[in-house]
């Protein structure tokens, strides 16, 4: 419940205030957002499985974001930034899909 309220607040705030993203952060923001969505999906799955833990969610959120950003950073340093970010996006996408499948199975028992 707190997570849903927070998401809504954040979306509304993002719509109304217009902060400028620092240039250094610009290449990493999309990947970080996708990683955070992955963490959110994982949290939603564990919530439906009655094993949700605040601590685990926070840790997984931060670790996801940091690992994704660091991967892209390393990729940029090595000259394979776009390929590596694609790889990260693919993996995160697969995880999001599997989590979504689990939630769907739980919700519709099918």
């Amino acid at each position: 419940m707190a997570a849903v309220i927070g998401l809504i607040i954040g979306i509304v705030a993002g719509l109304f205030i217009q902060p400028t993203v620092p240039v250094a952060l610009q290449p990493y923001l999309p990947i970080m957002v996708v990683a955070a969505i992955d963490a959110l999906m994982g949290a939603a799955r564990s919530y439906f499985e009655r094993s949700f833990s605040d601590r685990a969610f926070i840790v997984s959120l931060f670790s996801n974001i940091i690992i994704a950003a660091v991967l892209v950073l390393v990729g940029n340093q090595l000259g394979v930034g776009s390929q590596l970010s694609t790889a990260v996006l693919v993996v995160l996408g697969i995880r999001i899909f599997s989590n979504a499948t689990a939630i769907r199975r739980f919700l519709f028992r099918s």
Binding site: A2, G10, G14, Q18, P30, L40, D54
Partner: peptide, 29 residues
């Protein structure tokens, strides 16, 4: 803990919206 989760979700939502707005004006990506 609830507050932290709420705050983090808010940050994630805001970041998503900002990125969405940003993508229309940025050539960096």
């Amino acid at each position: 803990m609830r507050l932290v989760v709420c705050l983090l979700c808010a940050v994630v939502g805001m970041a998503a919206i900002i990125q969405h707005k940003n993508i229309q004006s940025s050539y960096a990506s």
